[in-house]
């Protein structure tokens, strides 16, 4: 496999995205809105509680949970891009000339994967950094120390987020082979947030402690297995023959 070919395809996609305002907004705006909104709500809630603010015990449960918002975003943000780059090309019939070039199926899939992987990852990382800075400013008064960054943050952002993005990309490739328009692809792809939203709710209901490093590592392991399975199926789905004769 020649990475240079995949990179050419990804670079073309990046250039295309740069002209698609809806994609730019979803990648850049949503993580930053979350980054600003949650600290503002926490600050507002703290002020309503008077001088005591939000209790420290409550805050140390909330803060790691909030970071899971970025995991949910990591699962969602690749959807508009993956749908556009695969279903969009299918609808606009630009896949066939691309498939006629001297590139392998794996090189094209990797190129599409890179273009659906890197922008959401950048958006999530950028938003998470802003979120942690603002949250530290808001919570420092109560905690007496800066909560972020910490080891669990590293696991969530550097391990779980890339795994969640990869999972979403894999699922979207599979979905792309079964839908005929970008919007349906995006709607179905959005279901990828469900498992992560479930984990977040589980954390809020104290079913699973999201501040526990071993729990995060177990979830990461499950994500890795899911990634491998989805990427295997995606690779089997993304074959010239399948695309031209069986994809809807």
């Amino acid at each position: 496999m020649r990475l240079s070919k995949s990179w050419v395809i990804a670079a073309k996609d990046f250039k295309t995205f740069s002209k698609k305002k809806n994609i730019i907004y979803s990648i850049a705006a949503v993580p930053f809105i979350v980054a600003v909104l949650i600290p503002l709500v926490i600050d507002f809630a703290g002020q309503r509680n008077g001088a005591a603010g939000i209790p420290e015990a409550r805050l140390v449960v909330l803060l790691p949970s909030f970071l899971f918002f970025y995991l949910i975003l990591a699962a969602y943000l690749p959807t508009p891009i993956a749908s556009y780059t695969i279903v969009g090309e299918k609808v606009e019939k630009s896949l066939e000339p691309l498939l006629a070039t001297p590139t392998t199926d794996s090189e094209i899939l990797l190129g599409k994967g890179i273009s659906a992987f890197l922008p959401p990852l950048g958006g999530v990382f950028g938003g998470a950094v802003v979120f942690m800075i603002l949250m530290d400013l808001v919570s420092h008064g109560t905690l007496g120390y800066y909560y972020f960054p910490n080891w669990n943050t590293g696991i969530v952002l550097l391990l779980m987020v890339p795994l969640a993005v990869a999972m979403s990309v894999g699922a979207n490739v599979i979905i792309s082979s079964r839908v005929t328009d970008v919007r349906t692809g995006q709607q179905l792809g959005a279901f990828m947030v469900a498992p992560f939203a479930g984990i977040y709710v589980g954390g809020e209901l104290n079913i699973v402690s999201l501040g526990d490093t071993s729990n995060l590592l177990i979830i990461s392991g499950i994500l890795l297995l899911a990634d491998l399975l989805l990427l295997y199926v995606a690779r089997a789905t993304f074959r010239r023959e399948e695309i031209l004769t069986k994809w809807k």
Binding site: V8, S94, T101
Partner: peptide, 29 residues
Amino acid sequence: RKLIGFVPDSVGLYDELSAYDNLDFYGKL
């Protein structure tokens, strides 16, 4: 595939890219 050129029945161009960038992309591939 390297030896041949292919004009499909649907043009399949990248509408957002310029004519030059469309060709440049394929030239790289």
